[in-house]
Design a binder for these strands. Structure first.
Lengths: 322, 322
DNA sequence: ATGAAAGCGCTAACAG
DNA sequence: CTGTTAGCGCTTTCAT
């Protein structure tokens, strides 16, 4: 494999000149630049990125941490983030944390070892000291704490939209699947939903996921169990995947949707548009979250101060389940 | 940030000794090892991976190329591959190729620039010369050509299972969504299915996707269009996502499933278990494909000769659509 | 068993 | 505008 020295020799110049010519840095006469480009092409020169990385102390890798790469929400988010990072010239390293303990901390350690230039985290911070990394970290749909900029959906609006959809449909008793975490921004949708429903005299049965698995099979099991135990309700509010679990359990029990039971999902992932009827749900703007998250990371990478948190609007998708 | 020199100085030894102690290479007296470990801990020493990479000419990164990270099949496959790579101590770089031209070639160029140690490709080879990379490449569910080991599902069996499911259900006229590519291994399921159905005198209407988008919205549109145009059929064979598209179109048109129309999906992604009724389908063994793909990559990385192609068994999932 | 020193291949400061 | 050279931080001979 030809190195920069070979190119320099062939072009009859020094290595510094080759470096400048190929990177477009510094002054180069048009003539020598041409000679160098020719030599590089002739030798099929591929610069060794490892040497470049060490010398610049920069890899152009951004790490993306997610609980589960298979979950429709995170899979979509990853797709858009990867695309957006590519636009800025960054490469995308992924890390899925749900299966294995300490994965978050290990990934952060890799950041400290200069493996990546920054991390976009869609998982909770593993601990307090994780906040003192000294390198760019952006959290998306999670709250890491002081100094870590955050990008998230307008869950206050989301909770309101869901509540209004069920209220307008005349629901009087609803099942509400909420979830927990380290004070994540999406918690807001649950409090807003709860409050609005109760203000209107609607009974709310709360189900709180014991762990935030982001796991299909787990969601199927838990939603099925609770749905079958509460077939008397006339409304459900749950994440997309959970909403499908409820729908399946209800249909299996012979309950007609939306006549006897209204269901509102949350997230608006692609799967909500896959069935007939489509799922009525609150849609997060996945491309918007991805763009804002990456944009924030790029800002940090350019050495600018931590930008303000960004809130991305949500919208209501009218399906056939309400 | 403390470097290896700092550790050496603090432990009162040379840098070479520190390197050997921390990497467990070469002989080290128990005493000096302890001194070194203490010094490293005291300084919170994090080795700079960039320097290590350059020196070893190895990054422990494996690139994974997929058409679309959002598609349920690829999202699941990625999840399992990432987990498996982690088990072997490798990190996972992703590249989604469907949105942007030349992405495959660029990714391969990165391999040539030593950014990664190898590539697992779930996309077609961009061109002939892509085969002469001189670094480990494994293709999963795709055919790259001579010298590139391949891991794929037993699609001959898969095509047979699908055909038998519809034949046993008494179908006489079926809609078959096939797809194209550069002679991919999964093509086999289509030829086997077609042949078996015709052998039994069943009429098969073929629909061939113009491009292999692996895209929800595209699949929804195309399947809807063809399904509505062929409401007279009594059976459908299509990929999972396409099968849901057909199901939605049929239900919308008031056709009862499975009474008037039987549907068999292909892939067995998580979404097939999400609805009621669940989708009857042929399941690929995603964890098995991932394990075999990664295992093959590791073999290559260890300098062993190209192993034989691996064929992973499939199974039939009995849902409620047949 | 350990220290000294020569790379790894590129970038960037410096001198001309 | 261009060549020379000193790093970047670690691994790995090669003596000792």
């Amino acid at each position: 494999m030809a190195g920069i020295k070979d190119v320099a020799r062939r072009a009859g110049v020094g290595v510094g000149t080759v470096s400048r010519a190929l990177n477009g840095s510094g002054y180069i006469s048009e003539e020598t630049r041409k000679k160098i480009l020719e030599a590089a092409k002739a030798l099929d020169y591929q610069p060794n990125e490892l040497a470049k990385n060490l010398s610049r102390n920069k890899t152009d890798f951004i790490g993306i941490m997610m609980p589960n790469l298979e979950h429709p929400f995170f899979a979509s988010l990853l797709k858009y983030m990867e695309l957006e990072l590519y636009r800025y010239g960054y490469k995308c390293m992924v890390c899925s944390t749900d299966q294995i303990d300490h994965r978050e901390q290990e990934f952060i350690d890799m950041l400290k070892r200069n493996v990546m230039d920054g991390i976009i985290a869609c998982v909770d911070a593993p601990n307090e000291e994780a906040l003192e990394i000294g390198r760019p970290v952006v959290s998306v749909e999670r709250r890491w704490g002081e100094g870590i900029p955050m990008v998230y959906s307008d869950h206050e609006m989301g909770g309101r939209m869901a509540a209004e959809a069920l209220l307008n449909a005349g629901c009087r008793k609803v099942l509400h699947f909420s979830s927990q975490g380290k004070n994540p921004p999406f918690e807001k949708r649950h409090t807003v939903f709860r409050t609005l429903m109760r203000e209107h005299g609607v009974e709310v049965i709360e189900v709180e996921g014991e762990w935030n698995h982001m796991d299909y099979a787990y969601d199927r099991e838990i939603t099925r169990r609770y749905m079958l135990r509460h077939l008397e309700v006339d409304g459900v509010f749950a994440s997309d995947v959970q909403a499908f679990g409820c729908m399946a359990a209800a249909l299996e029990a012979g309950i007609r949707i939306p006549e006897k039971l209204k269901i509102v999902g949350y997230d608006g992932t692609e799967i909500t548009r896959m069935t007939y009827p489509a799922l009525t749900c609150v849609c997060q703007d996945l491309p918007g979250l991805a763009k804002a998250g990456v944009q924030t990371m790029v800002t940090l990478l350019e050495g600018e101060p931590s930008p303000a948190d960004q809130v991305i609007p949500v919208s209501l998708q009218t399906g056939g389940t309400v």
